[in-house]
C-alpha cells in the first residue's frame, strides 16, 4: 500500500472518530437533563422510579468511558436506539428512507456533474463571448439563491399553479400502483426535487470546470498539440478535457457534502421521504436520538464517499500515487 493511501486512511479515520465522539458527547454535555434527549419532553410526567429505570436502561449511570464503549459498539452494529416520536427502532426508519435519498442524490450527482462539466468546458472554450458571459451570469444568480427557495418556486409554478406534477412525496399514497405504472408515478414525483437539486449543485462543478479548462487551454502542451497538427476537436476532448477534469474531481469530492446537505433541504421542501426529510422531522419533534442518527448517517456517507473518491484519484492523475508509491 502506498504512503498516499495510508495517509488518507489515517486522515479519514481521525475525521470519523471526531464525528462519532462529538455525537456521543453532545447530549451528555449539553445543559439540561440528558434524559430529555433520550425520552423526549415526556420526562416531566415520569415518576422518579421511571426516570431511574430509563437512565439505567440507557446506561447513563455508568462511568463515561463505559458509556462510550457501548456507544461505539452500538454504532458499529447499527443499533441506533429507539425513536420515541415515531415509536420505531431507528434502524428501521433509516432503512425505509435511505433508498429514496440514494435515488435522488445519486441521480443528482451524475446529472449535475455531467452538466457542470459540459457547460464549464463550453464556457471556457468560448471565453469572453456572449455565450460565456450569459452562462456566468446565469450561474452567478443561481448560486445567490437560497436552495430551498428554488425548490419552493418550482413547486409553486409546476405543481401549485400549473398542476403538472405532484406537490410532495415520492409516490402517490394508497395507490397500489405496480410495475410500469409505479415507475411512472415515482418518476413524476422525482422530477421537481431532482431539478431543484441539480440547479443548486451544478454551479460548483461549472465554475471549477471553467476555471480549470481556462488554465489547461493556456498550457504549453495544448499549443504543442496544435503544432502537431491535432484537430481542434481532438485537442478539446483528448488533450484538454482530461487534464481539466483533475481539479473537478477534487471539487467533486468536496461538493459531495454540499450536495447531500442540499438534499436535506430539498427533501424537506418536497416532503420527499429520504434521510434528509427524516432529519427535518426529527428536528421539528426534537426527537434527539433520531437527530443524532440521521446526522451520523448523512455525515458518514459523505466522508466515506470522499474517501472512495480520494482513493480513486491516483487512477486519474498519474502523478499522484506512483511517485509516492
Amino acid at each position: 500500500m502506498s504512503k498516499y493511501m495510508l495517509q488518507k486512511i489515517a486522515q479519514y479515520g481521525i475525521v470519523i472518530f471526531i464525528i462519532l465522539t462529538l455525537n456521543f458527547l453532545l447530549p451528555r454535555l449539553m445543559p439540561g437533563n440528558p434524559l430529555m434527549y433520550l425520552a423526549g419532553e415526556d420526562v416531566g410526567f415520569m415518576t422518579s422510579e421511571e426516570k431511574q429505570q430509563v437512565l439505567e436502561d440507557a446506561g447513563l449511570n455508568d462511568p463515561l468511558y463505559v458509556q462510550y464503549g457501548s456507544y461505539l459498539k452500538d454504532m458499529f452494529t447499527g443499533n441506533f436506539g429507539y425513536s420515541y416520536q415515531q415509536k420505531m427502532p431507528i434502524i428501521e426508519l433509516l432503512s425505509d428512507r435511505i433508498p429514496w435519498t440514494l435515488l435522488l442524490a445519486g441521480l443528482n450527482l451524475v446529472i449535475a456533474t455531467i452538466l457542470g462539466v459540459i457547460f464549464g468546458a463550453i464556457s471556457a472554450w468560448k471565453r469572453g463571448t456572449r455565450t460565456d458571459v450569459n452562462m456566468l451570469t446565469f450561474f452567478m444568480f443561481l448560486s445567490a439563491m437560497p436552495s430551498f427557495w428554488i425548490g419552493m418556486i418550482l413547486v409553486s409554478i409546476f405543481a401549485g399553479t400549473l398542476g403538472w406534477l405532484p406537490v410532495f412525496g415520492a409516490e402517490t399514497g394508497w395507490s397500489n400502483y405496480t410495475g410500469w405504472e409505479r415507475v411512472v408515478d415515482i418518476t413524476k414525483h422525482l422530477i421537481l426535487p431532482l431539478v431543484s437539486l441539480v440547479l443548486i449543485s451544478v454551479t460548483n462543478v461549472f465554475m471549477t470546470m471553467r476555471y480549470s479548462m481556462l488554465n489547461v487551454l493556456g498550457e504549453d502542451y495544448i499549443k504543442m498539440a496544435k503544432a502537431k497538427g491535432v484537430k481542434n476537436r481532438t485537442i478539446k476532448y483528448r488533450h484538454a478535457m482530461r487534464n481539466a477534469l483533475l481539479p473537478v474531481a477534487t471539487v467533486f469530492m468536496l461538493s459531495l457534502g454540499f450536495m447531500l446537505s442540499g438534499a436535506t433541504v430539498i427533501e424537506t421542501v418536497f416532503a420527499y421521504p429520504g434521510v434528509g426529510r427524516l432529519m427535518f422531522e426529527s428536528v421539528l419533534a426534537r426527537d434527539y436520538p433520531l437527530i443524532q442518527a440521521t446526522f451520523l448517517i448523512i455525515t458518514l456517507s459523505v466522508i466515506v464517499a470522499n474517501f472512495i473518491a480520494d482513493l480513486m484519484y491516483p487512477f486519474l492523475d498519474p502523478k499522484v500515487g506512483k511517485s509516492n508509491g
Binding site: 498550457e219 504549453d220 502542451y221 499549443k223 504543442m224 498539440a225 496544435k226 503544432a227 502537431k228 497538427g229 491535432v230 484537430k231 488533450h239 482530461r242 487534464n243 483533475l246 492523475d317 498519474p318 502523478k319
Partner: peptide
C-alpha cells in the same frame, strides 16, 4: 491544410519541454 503541414513538414522543439508534454 495547415493541420496536415504541421508536424509532417514543420515540427517544433518547444521552449519548455516540461510543460509541453501532456502529463496524463
Amino acid at each position: 491544410e495547415l493541420e496536415k503541414i504541421r508536424w509532417k513538414d514543420i515540427s517544433v522543439i518547444p521552449q519548455s519541454a516540461m510543460n509541453s508534454l501532456n502529463p496524463v
